[in-house]
């Protein structure tokens, strides 16, 4: 059977806001999925010329090489502080930060907490992969109890290293937050739900309803020493019970939102 592509309808193609370049991410890393979802939402909302991103330090440090809109790079953990400045100077622009767990909830805990407490009108995409990916898989604040990493070879000992931080629950207690949700990127259904959450987060900002954050549970096949398919199963079995998915804070003005 000969297939003529020009006679067929395009169901999916590379988003315009994502550059057609090779990323430095490991095969299977869901950073790529998160990048794609953000780019798709920017395309859908037609915000490409009105969007400024702030990249963090970590695996996502080169995000500015992959997105086709304005991007700046912040010092480690300070993306929400820089985003605050950008948003206050350009209140008509949409400002997002793209941060990992080592960046946002370790060194940058103060910045993110106060940005949320002030109700800064920015959107945060938070990637939670339960370790420090870029530096070689060390224990992060989000590492699960008993999880083996390069700096906890016998598993995370809660007596010594304490307990993981559930960032979404923590930030949802703050009055400045308009939309806080946790989603996962381990299967097609959850990826679709994650895209809706990212869309809602951007709508929150466009409507001026305060701080918005989407936490995305991600896989890290290289540092978990599993192949990508096994990593998605590990996430489902181990991370989902500790980090329940759901909306932790939804501004009442967002209830009627439908996509």
């Amino acid at each position: 059977m000969t297939i003529h592509l020009e006679d067929m309808q395009v169901i999916y193609q590379h988003p315009e806001s994502l550059l057609n370049v090779n990323t430095h991410y490991c095969p299977g890393c869901t950073h790529g999925v998160a990048h794609r979802l953000v780019a798709e939402v920017i395309d859908e909302m037609n915000l490409r010329n009105d969007c400024i991103g702030v990249a963090s330090v970590g695996c996502s440090v080169f995000a500015y090489n992959y997105f086709d809109f304005d991007f700046i790079q912040s010092p480690h953990g300070r993306a929400p502080a820089m985003a605050t400045g950008v948003k206050r100077v350009h209140p008509d622009k949409v400002v997002l930060t793209y941060q990992g767990d080592g960046d946002m909830i370790s060194i940058g805990t103060a910045e993110i907490t106060h940005a949320a407490a002030r109700g800064e009108n920015i959107t945060v995409i938070f990637i939670n992969n339960a370790n420090y990916g870029m530096t070689g898989g060390q224990m992060a604040p989000t590492t699960l109890p008993g999880q083996k990493t390069t700096s906890s070879p016998k598993g995370r000992d809660v007596e010594q290293a304490g307990y993981p931080i559930r960032a979404s629950e923590m930030l949802a207690t703050l009055d400045g937050a308009g939309y806080i949700a946790r989603r996962s990127l381990h299967d097609p259904k959850n990826i679709r739900l994650a895209k809706k959450a990212i869309r809602t987060a951007f709508e929150t900002q466009v409507r001026g309803l305060g701080f918005s954050m989407v936490e995305l549970l991600s896989i890290c096949p290289t540092n978990w020493h599993l192949n990508p398919a096994a990593s998605t199963r590990w996430l489902e079995e181990n991370m989902l019970p500790y980090y329940p998915l759901g909306d932790y804070k939804v501004h009442p003005a967002l209830k009627d939102l439908k996509f």
Partner: peptide
Amino acid sequence: EGCTGCGTCSVVCPEAAITVYREK
């Protein structure tokens, strides 16, 4: 043969490398 053009592969692809077509 057997692809239905459902687009699930493009949803999970971390590199956005897959373009999906479906007959009209």
